[in-house]
Design a protein around this nucleic acid. Structure first.
Lengths: 181, 181
DNA sequence: ACACTACCGAACACTTCGTTCGGTTATATT
DNA sequence: AATATAACCGAACGAAGTGTTCGGTAGTGT
C-alpha cells in the first residue's frame, strides 16, 4: 500500500480516536475529522464512503487487535485464548479493556453508539460460543436465549464498570460477571 | 389547554408514532413530521424545542401510561402493581408490551434509540426497586450492580423477544427472565 | 364583541453532507 | 534520473436539514 495512503488512513483514525475521547460519535462531523487529521475533504471521502464506514473500518481494526485469533502477536501480549486452567478469557478481556487501547472505553461509554455496540457484540459472540461450556445452562431455556443473555450480561457489566469509574479490579468484575450468569 | 394546542400536539404525536413504525428515530426529519401531522413548521417548534424534546415528551406520556402509579385507570386495565400473590408485575409488563401500545415495540427494536432506552430504563428502575425482594441477591456482589443487572436483563430479554418475532407467550418469556436472574 | 393567542407559511441564515474537477506532489518503476 | 501513475489538495457546488423570524389569518375563552 502506498505510503501516502497509509499515512492518510492513520491520520484519520488518529483524529477519529482523539475526537471520540471528547464527544459522542454522532456529534463528530466530517469537517472536524479532516481538520484534526489535516487532510483534504475529497481525500477523506476517497478513503471512507461515509462516517459510518469509517466507524466500521475502525471497529474492524480495533476488534482484530482485541479478539485477534492469530498467534503471531508482536506486542508480547498473551493471546486472549491462551488461558491456563482456572484462568478466564473474560478476565483477560476485562484486563485488556482496562488499558483503554484506542479509546475503546470512550466508545463504550458514549451515547448513540449502537453501531459500535453491534460490532462489539458480534465479536463477543464468537468468544462466548467458544466458552459456552463454562456456563451451566438451565434446561428450561433455549440455547439462543442463553447465549444472548451471557453476551448481554458481559456488555452490561462492562458498561456498569465504566460508568462507575472502573474502581473495581478486573478480577472483582470478573467475579461479579460469573456470579450473575 | 386550548383545543388547538391539544389537536396540534396530538397530531404531532400521531405522526411521530406512524413514522416510528416505518423508520428509525434518527432517520425521521422534522419536515416529515410536520408534513404527516399537517402542521406548520413554526408550530412544531413552538411545541417542541427540538426533535429530541419531542421524543422526551412522547416517552413521558408513554411511560406514564405503562408505568402509571395512579389508581384511576379509565381503560379497565388492571393496574400494573395490582398483582395477586404469585402473579408478577413483569408478566403484566410483557403482556402489556405485547399489545404494542403506541408502537413502543418499534422504538425498542430500532437502532439508535439510546435516548428512548434511557427513558425506558429510568422508568424500569422504580419498578425493579419495588420488586427487589423477589430476587435473591448473591452476597458477594453490590446491590447497585445487582439492580443494574436485573434491569439490563429485563431490557435484553425484551429485545431478544422482539428480535425473534415474539413467538413465545408472555408467560414463557417471564419464565425465561426469572430463570436467568 | 373582544382581546388573546395559536397557527400558517414563506423566507431566512446556518450547518453538514457528499461530489466534482483542475492542478499539484509524492511514489514506484524502469 | 526520467517518467507514468496515483494520491492528495482545496475550492466550489447542490442538496438536505435545522431552527428562527415575522406579518397575516383565524379559532378560542370570557
Amino acid at each position: 500500500m502506498d505510503r501516502r495512503q497509509r499515512k492518510t488512513r492513520e491520520a484519520i483514525f488518529h483524529a477519529f480516536t482523539k475526537l471520540l475521547s471528547q464527544k459522542d460519535f454522532n456529534q463528530i462531523t466530517v469537517g472536524e475529522i479532516i481538520e484534526v487529521a489535516d487532510v483534504g475533504r475529497a481525500t477523506f471521502y476517497s478513503h471512507f464512503e461515509t462516517k459510518d464506514y469509517l466507524l466500521k473500518a475502525f471497529c474492524e481494526e480495533l476488534f482484530c487487535h482485541i479478539f485477534d485469533t492469530e498467534n503471531d502477536d508482536p506486542h508480547g501480549h498473551r493471546h486472549i485464548f491462551d488461558c491456563d486452567g482456572s484462568d478466564s478469557v473474560f478476565l483477560h478481556l476485562f484486563q485488556h479493556l482496562q488499558n483503554n487501547d484506542n479509546n475503546i472505553l470512550a466508545l463504550l461509554a458514549s451515547q448513540n453508539n449502537d453501531l459500535f455496540l453491534n460490532y462489539f457484540r458480534a465479536n463477543l459472540e464468537t468468544l462466548v460460543e467458544s466458552q459456552l461450556s463454562l456456563f451451566e445452562r438451565p434446561t428450561n431455556i433455549p440455547e439462543a436465549f442463553w447465549k444472548n443473555h451471557i453476551i448481554s450480561t458481559f456488555v452490561e457489566t462492562l458498561k456498569w464498570w465504566i460508568a462507575c469509574g472502573m474502581k473495581e479490579t478486573p478480577e472483582v468484575i470478573t467475579e461479579y460477571f460469573f456470579t450473575v450468569v
